[in-house]
C-alpha cells in the first residue's frame, strides 16, 4: 500500500520541497557561463593592460558593459548555488549552517550589485 498521496508524485517536489530547482538552475547558469567566461578571459587579457582611459572606454562600450553585467549576475548566482552545497555538506549544526548560508547569499548579492553598479557608472559616465 502506498501511503503517499498522488499529488506528491504529481508535483514531484520531494522531501526538500523544491524538486530539482537548485540542480537545474546550477546547470542553466553553468551553460550560460561557458561562452561568457571564455569571452571574459580572452577579452580581459587583451584589454586589461591599458591605462584608465583605455580600460574604461573598453568597458563603456555597450556590448562589453552588457556582457560584464550578464557575467557578474550569472557568476554570483552560480557561485552562491555552489557554495550553498559546499556549506550544506561540510558545516554541521543548524545555527552555524544557517549563518554561513545567509552570509554567503548576502555577500554574493552585495558583490554582484557593487560590480554591476561599477560597470554602469563607467558605461554611463556617472
Amino acid at each position: 500500500m502506498d501511503l503517499r498521496t498522488p499529488i506528491k508524485n504529481a508535483r514531484g517536489l520531494g522531501s526538500a520541497k523544491n524538486g530539482v530547482t537548485h540542480w537545474w538552475l546550477q546547470r542553466v547558469t553553468a551553460v550560460a557561463l561557458v561562452p561568457l567566461v571564455i569571452w571574459f578571459a580572452f577579452s580581459l587579457a587583451s584589454n586589461a593592460g591599458g591605462n584608465h582611459a583605455e580600460v574604461t572606454a573598453w568597458i563603456a562600450s555597450p556590448l562589453t558593459a552588457g556582457l560584464f553585467i550578464l557575467l557578474i549576475g550569472t557568476v554570483f548566482f552560480h557561485a552562491q548555488l555552489g557554495l550553498q552545497v559546499v556549506i550544506e555538506d561540510y558545516v554541521h549544526g543548524k545555527v552555524a549552517q544557517l549563518a554561513c548560508l545567509l552570509a554567503v547569499k548576502f555577500l554574493a548579492f552585495i558583490l554582484a550589485v557593487t560590480g554591476i553598479l561599477a560597470v554602469l557608472r563607467i558605461a554611463l559616465g556617472g
Partner: peptide
C-alpha cells in the same frame, strides 16, 4: 571574484 569587483570598482572610482 572579489578581485574582479575590486578592479571594476577601482576603474569606476577614477
Amino acid at each position: 571574484s572579489l578581485l574582479l569587483i575590486y578592479w571594476l570598482s577601482a576603474a569606476a572610482a577614477g
